[in-house]
Design a protein around this nucleic acid. Structure first.
Length: 594
DNA sequence: CGCAATTGTCATTAA
DNA sequence: CATTAATGACAATTG
C-alpha cells in the first residue's frame, strides 16, 4: 500500500499507461446500474452469503481444532495464553466492569480475563473454547505468515493467546450482529487492509498497546458489554480500529494498518469465539446489553478522536451530507456486487477465506495491485491519509464505497498465502498481481488509481452535481486528475445511460414484438371475419336472387302472361315500394308513374 | 481463430 | 452555458 504512494512519477506514468491500455470490466458498476438485475440476483446473493457464512464457521471450527494442539503446546501455564505480560493488565480488568473499562482494555487483557474467568470451562468443558483463541492466533499467524499454514509461530500465536470471548457473553443476537458486522464490506475491507499490513510487517503491536486492544475488546468479550459492541455500527468498528492503530503505529514504527490487521485477526477470532461460545452458552447475559452498548459506543466514539486518522474523523472531515449519502449509497449498492463476486471466491482455500466472507478474483487482484495503484483499495485510502495532499475528506468519501471492494480483496489475501507472500516479499510478483487486478478493475478505476485520485469511481459518477463539486473543491487536483475525474464521471454516466438505453431498446423491442403478435392475431381475426362476411354476403345474394326470381315469376300481365326478365325488372324505391320497370324504358316508366 | 453477443466509449442532439 | 440523458455508431471484450 505504502509502496504505491511512494512510487515515482515515472512508475506512475507507466502504470497509467498500462491501465489505459489494459481494459477491464467493472462488474459492480454494471450491476448497480441495473436495478432489475439486482432484484433478481438479491435472493441468490443472500443465499450465497448465508452459505458462505456457514462454510466459514465450519472452517473456523476445524482450524481451531487443528490449532488447539499447538495452543496446548504453548499452554505452559495451563492457560491458553502463552504471554505472561498480558496477565497483569487483565487482572484489573476482570473485576472491573467491562463496559466502563472497555476503552482501556486491550485485546490480550480481554482474552486473559476470559481465560481466567472461565479457565475451567475452557480447558475442561470445551475444546472449542481452547480452539477459539487458537483459531484467532492461527488466523493472525496466517495473516502474518501464510494462510495455508494453520500452525501459528510462537510470535504469531501470542495474539491468539488472548483468551477467547466468554461463552456466556455471546448470545444468538450477538452472533447475528457479529455476522452482520463482519459481513459489512467496510469492515471486511478494513480487516483486509489490516491483514495485509500485518502480513507485511509480521509485528504484533497489539499486545503492547492497550489502545489497540480496545477494538479487540469489543469483539472478544463475550459478556454483555461485548454484545453491546456488536450492536455498534460498522463505522464505529472502523473507528475503533483506527483508534487502536495510531497508538500502535508509533510504537512499532509500523503503519497503523498493522494494528488494524491485528485487530482484524482478533475480530476473526472473536467471531469464531462467538460462534463457539454461542453454542455453549447462549443467552445467559442478555440483560444490561443496552447499557453496555451505549458505553461501548461512547468509548468507541472517543477512541477515534484519539486516532490521527479514523474513519470517523474522515467522515467528520467530509464535506457534508453528500458524502454520507454517497457512502450510504455505495454501501447499499455494493453488497450486490460483493455478493456476486463473493460467489467467485473459493471458500475451500482456507478457513480464513471463509471468514473473509466474499473474496473475488478482482479483490485479490486489487489487493495485489495496491503497490501500483491503490487508491480504490482501503489500504490505499489509509495510505492516502498519511499523504499530505490527500485530504481527509477524500478518504472519508472514498472509504464507504471502497470498503466493499476491499472486502472481497481481503478475504482472498487471507485465503491465498502465495499472494500474500508475493505481496510482502516480491515486487516482481506485483506485476502479475497488477495485471490480475487490472483485469478485474474497470479502466476508469485503474486510471483513477494511476493518478491517485482520492475519490472512488462510484462517488465520482454517482454523486449529485452539488456534492460532486463540493467534493472536488475540497481537493486540489492537477489538470490530469481533473480531466480524468471529468471523463470518469462522463463515461460513468454515459455507461449507465447506454445500459438504460439498451434496456429500454430491448423493452421496446419486446413490446413491439408483443404488439406485433397481437396485431397479427387481430389481422387473422379480421380476415376470418371478412371471409365469413363474404360467405354470408354471397349467401344473402343467392337468396335474394332466388327471391327475386320467385317474385318476378309470379307477376302476370293483363293477359295472364308472364313478363320476360329480359324486358322487365323489379326495382325497389327508397320508400320500400316495388315497381316493375321495363328495362329499356325504365326511366320513362318510372317518370310516368311519378 | 472466428463469430456473435455484450459492453464500453465517443459523438451528437435535445432537454 | 453547463449538465445530463438519450441514442447511434464504433470499438473492445467475452463466451
Amino acid at each position: 500500500m505504502m509502496e504505491m504512494e511512494v512510487m515515482h512519477s515515472g512508475q506512475q506514468d507507466m502504470d497509467l499507461i498500462d491501465i489505459l491500455w489494459k481494459q477491464d470490466i467493472d462488474l459492480g458498476a454494471r450491476r448497480e446500474v441495473f436495478d432489475y438485475n439486482h432484484r433478481q440476483k438479491e435472493h441468490e446473493l443472500q443465499r450465497q452469503r448465508q452459505l458462505e457464512e456457514e462454510k466459514k464457521l465450519h472452517l473456523l471450527r476445524e482450524q481451531e481444532k487443528a490449532l488447539l494442539a499447538q495452543l496446548q503446546l504453548d499452554e505452559e501455564t495451563g492457560e491458553y495464553i502463552p504471554r505472561a505480560p498480558l496477565q497483569p493488565a487483565v487482572t484489573p480488568l476482570e473485576n472491573a466492569s467491562f463496559t466502563e473499562t472497555s476503552d482501556a482494555m486491550s485485546f490480550d487483557e480481554c482474552l486473559l480475563l476470559l481465560a481466567e474467568t472461565f479457565p475451567v470451562e475452557e480447558t475442561e468443558n470445551t475444546s472449542v473454547c481452547l480452539d477459539t483463541p487458537a483459531v484467532s492466533a492461527a488466523i493472525s499467524s496466517n495473516m502474518m505468515m501464510s494462510p495455508e499454514q494453520p500452525a501459528p509461530s510462537p510470535a504469531t500465536l501470542s495474539p491468539g493467546q488472548l483468551p477467547p470471548p466468554a461463552p456466556q457473553g455471546m448470545s444468538p443476537d450477538l452472533e447475528e450482529a457479529w455476522m452482520e458486522i463482519l459481513s459489512l464490506p467496510e469492515l471486511q475491507e478494513c480487516l483486509n487492509m489490516q491483514m495485509e499490513d500485518t502480513l507485511e510487517t509480521t509485528t504484533y503491536p497489539l499486545q503492547d498497546s492497550p489502545e489497540i486492544q480496545n477494538p479487540n475488546y469489543s469483539f472478544y468479550p463475550m459478556t454483555d458489554e461485548k454484545a453491546n459492541s456488536l450492536n455498534v455500527d460498522p463505522t464505529e468498528f472502523m473507528n475503533t480500529f483506527d483508534s487502536s492503530i495510531p497508538s500502535m503505529a508509533p510504537a512499532d514504527g509500523l503503519s497503523p494498518i498493522k494494528v488494524k490487521t491485528t485487530e482484524l485477526n482478533a475480530n476473526l477470532g472473536a467471531e469464531s469465539f462467538c460462534n463457539i461460545f454461542y453454542q455453549n452458552t447462549i443467552l445467559e447475559e442478555s440483560s444490561g446489553q443496552h447499557e453496555l452498548e451505549e458505553n461501548e459506543s461512547a468509548a468507541v466514539s472517543n477512541v477515534p478522536n484519539e486516532a490521527p486518522f479514523t474513519p470517523m474523523d474522515l467522515y467528520s472531515l467530509s464535506p457534508g451530507d453528500a458524502f454520507d449519502r454517497s457512502k450510504q449509497n455505495l454501501i447499499t449498492e455494493q453488497p450486490d456486487s460483493d455478493s456476486g463476486i463473493s460467489t467467485n471466491a473459493s471458500p475451500a482455500k482456507s478457513a480464513y477465506g471463509s471468514e473473509s466472507f466474499r473474496c473475488s478474483d478482482s479483490d485479490m487482484e486489487e489487493m495485489d495491485q495496491n503497490p501500483g495503484s491503490a487508491e480504490s483499495d482501503y489500504s490505499e485510502m489509509f495510505s492516502l491519509n498519511f499523504q499530505p495532499d490527500d485530504a481527509h475528506a477524500a478518504i472519508s468519501v472514498s472509504i464507504p464505497s471502497q470498503q466493499p471492494n476491499e472486502h472481497e480483496k481481503n478475504p482472498k489475501h487471507k485465503v491465498d498465502p502465495g499472494e500474500e507472500s508475493s505481496h510482502k516479499n516480491a515486487p516482481f510478483t506485483k506485476d502479475k498481481a497488477k495485471k490480475r487486478s487490472n483485469v478485474r478493475l474497470s479502466r476508469d478505476e485503474q486510471r483513477a488509481k494511476a493518478l491517485k485520485i482520492p475519490f472512488t469511481v462510484d462517488m465520482i459518477i454517482n454523486l449529485p452535481v452539488d456534492d460532486f463539486n463540493e467534493m472536488m473543491s475540497k481537493h486540489q487536483l492537477n489538470e490530469a486528475q481533473l480531466a480524468l475525474v471529468r471523463d470518469i464521471r462522463r463515461r460513468g454516466k454515459n455507461k449507465v445511460a447506454a445500459q438504460n438505453c439498451r434496456k429500454r431498446k430491448m423493452e421496446n423491442i419486446v413490446g413491439l414484438e408483443s404488439e406485433l403478435d397481437s396485431l397479427k392475431e387481430e389481422k387473422e381475426r379480421l380476415l376470418s371475419e371478412k371471409s365469413k362476411n363474404m360467405t354470408d354476403l354471397k349467401e344473402m345474394k343467392w337468396q335474394l336472387n332466388n327471391l327475386y326470381l320467385e317474385v318476378f315469376g309470379m307477376l302476370r300481365d293483363e293477359k295472364g302472361n308472364s313478363y320476360s326478365p329480359s324486358e322487365y325488372s323489379l326495382q325497389q324505391s327508397t320508400d320500400g315500394s316495388v315497381f316493375l320497370v321495363p328495362r329499356i324504358k325504365k326511366t320513362f316508366k318510372s317518370d310516368d308513374r311519378h
